[in-house]
Design a protein around this nucleic acid. Structure first.
Lengths: 338, 338
DNA sequence: CTGTTAGCGCTTTCAA
DNA sequence: TTGAAAGCGCTAACAG
């Protein structure tokens, strides 16, 4: 069943049917009505691959995610799916754990003629996405903190989040703050670390560089980092992390060491993944508003689609401290007798 | 850049280029080699929408998931992405929380000419997927436990998992087992419940119908159900659940009630989601092998694609008890003095 | 072994 | 206000 069939039934040409479907005003109301009825009766399903072939518009956006097993990213995926489902747009999902997978994914996106692409990883070499620039595909990066022609960015304001977290810990009496960061070589890892450092200074606290470790945004990294941190001659009493999975890993590591959270060590996550509130103890974390991120990405894509030569937009989403139970007042320290 | 351009450069016709790309043996080795070189040099990217238009094959599978925020499903999504990335197949993802979303998703799949569809929800009214049958789209359902022409099924063997879990609890001294099931009206909920009941009987234990509650496969349901269970005059000492999220919810609910897991109540999950090992206590749960499920789905789809009229296949994946720390020996009960 | 050609379904320009 | 027709890129049937 195609437009020609519908046209035949309605006694018009397929051009008229196309006009009705696309809401063109150039059709007599009566004719349009008759066609619409037939469309409903026959349950007509248009074939967008014809349009894709003719005009290169696919009504598909690419979505590059660094780790499909990280709930933060799939929660964003869920938001995007939600926002797009109404509009007949589809997502082409690519898990880009490795550089070679990323290269292949870019190719897949070009093949499928995506109308835009969202990059949730800043780790890509510019090289990998170059082909997309070349083919004038509108882009949005997340937290790459730079825009270009046809390339927008949605950044996360880590600073306010970490600052509130540091204030919160200071009030609880903590003075030795540790930090477990993300993979080296990713811009967002540096950004997060710098936001933490800035927050510590702004709160007028002492920065302890020996209490900073590198993680991998996953459980394992957090677990290993915390075990290394706790071996320090004087370990931190509270640890901030680069994301929730790292925090979960740290908590697991602490338990393995026989330490209790938050009695012995306070932990602060970042993301506020759904399960953060379920952990025992429920995780104190810095929330990234996923809905707003998703909306920002789509808005940017829409904006750029109009004019790919134009400079992309820059959009910043705020973060917010969510205090739960993985942070607590510091244990009163035994002072050496005078 | 299209096949004609490549053909021009190679001094051949586009048909020959097409043959080379598709690995036809009907090309002289020398010619093929020359074309392959040009393909590489020019970084040619074929346009599959032409093929889709011509033959209705899209190299896309639909994937219907009931809850994109449930890590179990996104972990399956990750497996599928992994398996498909090599093959230039894409996934069209649909979150089908509501019936109307499901209907729309089926339409989206028909529009995009999917070559097959995987239904991770048994909740659909047959009506909703009827159009897919009509259009002869190969289907795989998960745990619908029935096959038809062009419709395969991948079932999960809950029985062995629950049985092992029940044995495990019996050995720990538990006699009063509770159960928190899934949403009513889903076949898989019934299947899970029946598997639990059968396991209890098979282990020679007493079934306590008043210790059975309905959940919703999500945190909230587990939380509410456990609170209701604990109000029973004699509450369960161990509770099995329909999935991990329910178990997480139950644990959260128990903490809210001031009960400790596993000291006061043992909890058993189902799925073995990535974070199950991170919770405190790490969750004892029945593992569903996600990789095998994903492989089973794709195998079934491939099989049916050859011949849509043929009866679908039936594939069962086993389950496996993973003992962690949310289950423990029952507390010695004070017996009334004689 | 290679080329020619038709046609998939849609949209849009041009003509009426 | 409507219709005719071209053409997007690819593949397979057919002809050579």
């Amino acid at each position: 069943m195609n437009m020609k069939d519908i046209a035949a039934r309605a006694g018009v040409s397929s051009a008229t049917v196309s006009r009705v479907i696309n809401g063109s005003p150039l059709v007599r109301g009566e004719t349009a009505e008759r066609i619409r009825e037939i469309l409903l009766e026959t349950n007509f399903i248009p074939n967008p691959s014809a349009t894709t072939l003719k005009y290169g518009r696919s009504k598909t956006y690419g979505l590059v995610i660094p780790d499909l097993r990280n709930p933060f990213f799939t929660e964003i995926l869920a938001e995007l799916e939600d926002l797009l489902a109404e509009t007949d747009y589809e997502l082409l999902i690519a898990n880009s754990q490795t550089s070679s997978k990323l290269v292949k994914s870019v190719r897949r996106m070009l093949m499928r003629q995506v109308d835009g692409a969202i990059f949730m990883a800043s780790e890509f070499d510019t090289q990998a996405i170059d082909p997309l620039f070349l083919h004038k595909v509108p882009l949005v990066t997340v937290d790459r903190r730079t825009v270009g022609a046809g390339c927008s960015d949605v950044s996360i304001d880590f600073e306010s989040g970490y600052l509130n977290a540091v204030y919160h810990l200071r009030e609880l009496g903590h003075r030795r703050l540790g930090y477990i960061g993300g993979t080296l070589g990713l811009l967002t890892s540096t950004t997060r670390l710098e936001a933490f450092v800035k927050a510590v200074k702004q709160a007028g606290m002492e920065l302890h560089p020996q209490l900073i470790r590198i993680g991998d945004y996953r459980l394992r990294g957090g677990e290993q980092a915390i075990q290394s941190l706790m071996k320090e001659p004087s370990p931190p009493t509270a640890v901030l992390t680069a994301n929730d999975l790292t925090a979960f890993g740290a908590i697991r590591g602490l338990h393995a060491l026989g330490c209790s959270v938050p009695k012995d060590v306070s932990i602060v996550g970042l993301d506020d993944v759904l399960l953060a509130s379920v952990l025992q103890p429920p995780l104190t974390t810095i929330r990234i508003p996923r809905r707003r991120m998703a909306e920002g990405c789509l808005k940017a894509l829409n904006h750029t689609k109009e004019n790919v030569e134009a400079l992309g937009t820059r959009y910043t989403v705020p973060t917010e401290l969510v205090v739960r139970e993985s942070t607590a007042r510091i244990r009163s320290v035994r002072r050496p007798a005078k």
